[in-house]
Amino acid sequence: MTRTVLVVDDDPDVREVLGLALSVVPDWRIETASDGREAVRRCGHGGVDAVVLDVEMPGYDGRRTLRELEAANAALPVVLLTAAADTAGLLDLGALAVLAKPFDPLSIGLTLARLLRWDA
């Protein structure tokens, strides 16, 4: 079963590295979005099984994006990604987990599979 993961980050380098790191996981299709507004639009069309969402972005930041995604589809698992040292309260927003930047590209796929409870 192919699953689609939407990677949302305003930094094109992070999108590329994370996209490549996750693309090696069997049966995962990786899509990317450069901001929260695009993520909400893309998730609204269906076909996204999980979202990896940067917290700090201009405009629709991760908090606002998460609220809008939950309002549209409460069952969609969202994993937050942040470079902030203080992550207190982020799980209270309703995300499945919070992962730190920088991340290990060699293990992030297995980490996400474990968090999502998907076989990798």
Rank of each mutant, 00 (worst) to 15 (best):
R42E: 03
R67L: 10
D27N: 12
G44I: 03
G59H: 11
C43Q: 05
P26Q: 05
E70H: 14
H45A: 10
D9W: 05
G62A: 12
T2E: 12
G94Y: 14
R63P: 00
D27Y: 13
P26H: 06
Y60E: 08
L80K: 11
V78R: 06
N73P: 02
D92A: 15
R37C: 10
S34R: 11
L91S: 01
A113R: 15
A113L: 11
L110K: 13
L93E: 02
L76D: 04
E31I: 00
H45N: 05
D54P: 01
S23E: 07
G47A: 03
Y60V: 00
G46E: 10
A120I: 11
G59C: 09
T2L: 05
A33N: 06
R42I: 12
D10L: 07
M1N: 02
R63W: 10
L90N: 02
Y60M: 15
L93D: 01
W28T: 00
A21H: 08
A50H: 02
L96G: 07
D92C: 03
D27S: 12
E16R: 14
G109W: 13
V51P: 04
G46C: 06
G89R: 14
N73H: 11
L99G: 09
L91N: 07
R15W: 15
E68R: 15
D86E: 07
A95L: 13
R63N: 01
V17N: 02
D13R: 15
W28S: 00
V40G: 09
L115A: 12
A50V: 00
G19C: 07
K101T: 05
K101D: 06
R3L: 15
A21M: 04
L96E: 04
A85H: 08
I108M: 12
V24W: 15
R29V: 08
L115C: 13
V24F: 14
L66Y: 14
L90Q: 01
L99Y: 13
T2P: 10
L80T: 03
L110A: 03
V78S: 07
V79H: 04
D35N: 13
L66C: 08
L80R: 08
L91T: 06
L116T: 00
A95V: 07
R64N: 01
V8F: 08
S34C: 01
L20H: 09
